[in-house]
Amino acid sequence: MKPDTVLSVKDMHTVFATPGGTAHAIRGVSFDLRRGERLGIVGESGAGKSALVLSLLGLVEPPGRVAGGSVWLNGRDLRTLSERQMRRVRGKEISIVFQDPLTALNPVRRIGPQVAEVLLMHGDLSRKQARERAVGLLADVELPEPEKCYAAYPHELSGGMRQRVMIAIALANSPDVLIADEPTTALDATTQAQIITLLNKVIEERGTAVVMITHNMGLVADFCDTVQVMYAGEVVEYGSRDRLLDRPAHPYTAALLASVPAMDARRDLPLPALSGLPPSLTDLPEGCAFAPRCPLEGERGLCRTTRPAPRILDGEPDRMSMCHFSAEQLALTS
């Protein structure tokens, strides 16, 4: 574990029971998050990014189940906590901003109480104090007329304003870790930029560590310090933003980046689909999960028979790639 680690995830496994068999949605994911770090998680749809988030918070519901692993936060393994104890962690030490702000607020309740309740649940404030703090939070996320927003219903606010409310809720108790699961995907480009600017500001003020899940490589390049690439429930590559974007060590990362045309010119493009499909999570190939789509694999038997181990790259500390031929991939881009 790195010295100033806030969150340390070790060998997480999550499965879903489906009619077609057990889907292994998360397969041995490990990573560390330092205080104030901004980690980007990228990967195709279905890679397991959201499942990972729910697993960390203990919110996987049947037919899903966390099958193993540990989540260390502030000195204890969240997986050993009771549901009662977990409730004191969620929204206090770790919180989430979800993708779709339009459906993330309860439509029949006013905005204000939905913000204030997260304060009331985790602190011993009076209702009046919670109300004042909530209005303050709405002002912090730069909502015009926070008093009016407090009394408004969700449908009276625009998508961008609602996402600001969600950020206010997530940051209300100054959590150690903020997870943003595609926080801007549902918004138009201008609003996206405003939300990211706001996130930058409020995170900096509080020194919050962020896990930013996104399909948007431009956002990774602008916002994140480190990047983790997920494929079929595994972290296939991890590294600092610049190293990883400039010199991918995993063929999947390389393919992802290659599929973003003219990265420098058009950084705001979302990830387009790669050729081929990810493997079925109920029936994974024996060797490397990426082998059927891998341009580097050729006809090499090793990739088809042996699952590559996560490997620290030579001469690159803090850099991991899960590929038998990382060196060759690196050589391609140097």
Binding site: L57, L59, E83, R84, R87, R88, V89, R90, G91, K92, S95, I96, F98, D100, T103, A104, L105, N106, P107, E117, V118, M121, H122, M166, I169
Partner: peptide, 14 residues
């Protein structure tokens, strides 16, 4: 509904 998940993620019980 997503807002139910949001409520859970705030620390509310089942």
């Amino acid at each position: 509904e997503p807002y139910i998940l949001v409520a859970r993620s705030k620390g509310r019980g089942r």
